[in-house]
């Protein structure tokens, strides 16, 4: 059997005396669409930070395609095919959309250490950016500065950024947060069109989006896994209704 795209084994994270993540285990096969839900403060973003390497776990291990990445620097994990988005879009506000996406291509091809030549005359950067922006329908934005874009469009640009990396595993931290309903439709369309071989772990509060996108769902409560199951299982689980769906209005 092939190694899972992403395997988390018994991860815990303590901040001082506070145990934010407790013995979490997850396994995502290649091409999985896995959602992570739970009330605010359940430690969902902490888990994404642990996987992407911005935080170091207190115990447990993380493997990507069977390779142990627990002690790897975040940038090295990206090199192994891991990419993520942030709850609040993390982009380069003073650069144009083309430059934002171009930077991701640069990083992927290892061109960011080139002190010579021009960005504009590197076909792999310019054409790659053009192709990606076209496929996402973002061509008109190419020359705009990110700082001048409305929030919904920044979201899409961030997804373009991570897609430019051609990741094997993608972590999406509340992609629909702060989006207008109309923008959510566009986002969902985009997410549903992503390549099938791409493994996705998504944190989301918007249940309609979760139920349409995910195949399996893990429910996290107070830093530990409460239950894991198929979409149907989770919908039917009364405990989930209590701890999460019942408190949705706070989200």
């Amino acid at each position: 059997m092939a190694a899972p795209a992403l395997a988390i084994e018994g991860i815990s994270k303590n901040f001082g005396g506070l145990r934010v993540s407790r013995d979490i285990s997850l396994s995502l096969p290649v091409g999985a669409r896995h959602a992570l839900i739970g009330p605010n403060g359940a430690g969902k973003t902490t888990l994404v930070n642990l996987i992407s390497g911005l935080l170091q776990p207190s115990s447990g291990r993380i493997a990507l395609d069977g390779v142990d990445i627990t002690n790897l620097a975040p940038e090295r994990r990206v090199g192994l095919g891991l990419a993520r988005t942030f709850q609040i879009s993390s982009l380069f506000p003073s650069l144009t959309v083309a430059e934002n996406v171009g930077l991701a291509f640069e990083a992927r091809f290892g061109l960011d250490r080139r002190l010579w030549g021009r960005v504009r005359s590197r076909p792999e950067i310019v054409e790659g950016t053009a192709a990606l922006l076209q496929s996402l329908g973002l061509l008109e934005l190419a020359r705009k500065r990110v700082a001048d874009l409305p929030y919904g469009q920044r979201r899409l640009v961030e997804i373009a950024l991570v897609l430019a990396l051609e990741p094997k595993t993608l972590l999406l931290d509340e992609p629909a947060a702060g989006l207008a309903v109309s923008d959510r439709g566009a986002l969902l369309d985009l997410l549903l069109r992503l390549p099938e071989a791409l493994t996705i772990l998504v944190i989301e509060h918007d249940m309609s989006l979760v139920f349409r996108l995910a195949q399996r769902i893990t429910v996290l409560v107070e830093g530990q896994v409460m239950t894991e199951g198929s979409v149907a299982d989770i919908r039917a689980d009364p405990r989930v209704r209590d701890v999460y769906l019942g408190t949705r209005s706070h989200g």
Binding site: F92, L95, R114, L115
Partner: peptide, 14 residues
């Protein structure tokens, strides 16, 4: 103007 230069501006931003 180099690819490195763009990366530098990116590092300053984020």
């Amino acid at each position: 103007n180099s690819p490195f230069g763009l990366a530098v501006r990116g590092m300053r931003d984020n």
